[in-house]
Design a protein around this nucleic acid. Structure first.
Lengths: 210, 210
DNA sequence: GTCTATAAATAGATAGAC
DNA sequence: GTCTATCTATTTATAGAC
């Protein structure tokens, strides 16, 4: 006996959300086309305006989803009871995991950086801010424990997310370059990148790179 | 006695090029508006089509200018006669210098990454490829001299340009976050970032981060 | 070389039927 | 909730005068 089907609209809303995320990732906010989004979701334009207020509102919802997911996840990391070193590793791992769960995440994040955060409303900007602040607290804790040297949280944060987003977002271009003849450019598994960034970050925090 | 004025069109072409670079950096390819570009250059739309074939061709020319500038500059670095360590430092410095000379450079580069290099024609893609290859040769040289451990050129390259573009491109967002209350987020001078990345890269190549 | 005016296409948003 | 049809604004691109 089949379970009573949930309202079809819940599903169509989710399909539109997914399709929109993919479209915004591939073409950016301005380049995205609501008609194409609707068709990718096997629906039509009008349904976007039924479920969302506008193209801009739809985009903001995707941004909020992204940044709140990362924000709450790293907050959990900071609250855990383990060494500062493990928290740093978990911090990197957490961002990578959220990014891998959402393939559209890295391109959209990169674009928002390029845009100067023009599409971020105050609340979402706050979540982005909180991520850096969380890392700052982990660093402080490590300093108090005598394991880390003091460091600018923003500098460390950039050192983590920039290469992470770069490698996750460039998988496609790198394959393109590989086909064009560059050797050993494409086959760098995410695991390797994450491990590399974890080691790098700890080396910085422990003052081993001067 | 005034020098005979060069043809006015040379100047108007350059003005359009500059205005276009700024527009593409701020809004991306799709978000850019040829009318706005023309007005920013104190000219009109028709002049864009007089000097350039199309919006797409204009954009491609900006990309080519960017990547050829970096490509030839790092080629000089690799050809210099100095230690591999100094070449690595100069490599980072060279990219930073070209990026600082063109404020539109980091945002556009970030967007191209996000886009998967969709706007890069074969020739320009080749220049991007050449930059990585050049770094690869510097690494090899260091390995032969027994100073570097073998490393994936692409991994090292990403570790350089990702944080570099990130910090140069985020100056604006970071100021926005600072105004919203985050402390010590905005005031990281480019010099500090470059020095940090130079040390980081050398630590990786010398096998000091494992 | 530079301009105005306009053609032609595209895309965000809504009305209204079912 | 979902669709078709359409309105309206925007925008790339060109024609043609000066």
């Amino acid at each position: 006996m089949a379970r009573p089907p949930r309202s079809a609209s819940v599903d169509s809303r989710r399909r539109l959300f997914e399709a929109a995320a993919a479209e915004f990732a591939a073409r950016g906010y301005a380049g995205a086309n609501v008609d194409r989004i609707a068709r990718a979701a096997r629906l039509n334009k009008a349904m976007i305006y039924y479920h969302f207020k506008s193209k801009a509102a739809l985009y903001r919802e995707i941004l909020r989803d992204m940044f709140t997911a990362v924000g709450t996840r790293v907050a959990d990391v900071a609250a855990a009871s383990c060494t500062p070193e493990d928290k740093v590793r978990a911090f990197v791992e957490a961002i990578a995991a959220e990014a891998e769960a959402r393939p559209h995440f890295p391109p959209i994040w990169l674009r928002e950086i390029a845009e100067g955060g023009g599409h971020l409303d105050a609340a979402t900007l706050n979540y982005a801010r909180a991520v850096v602040a969380t890392l700052g607290r982990i660093i402080e804790e490590g300093c108090r424990a005598g394991r880390f040297k003091p460091a600018q949280p923003m500098l460390v944060h950039g050192g983590i997310i920039a290469p992470l987003m770069f490698f996750l977002a460039t998988a496609r271009v790198r394959r393109k370059m590989q086909r064009a003849g560059a050797a050993g450019v494409a086959d760098i598994p995410p695991k390797v990148v994450v491990a590399h960034i974890q080691r790098l970050t700890l080396a910085v925090l422990e003052g081993r790179i001067a």
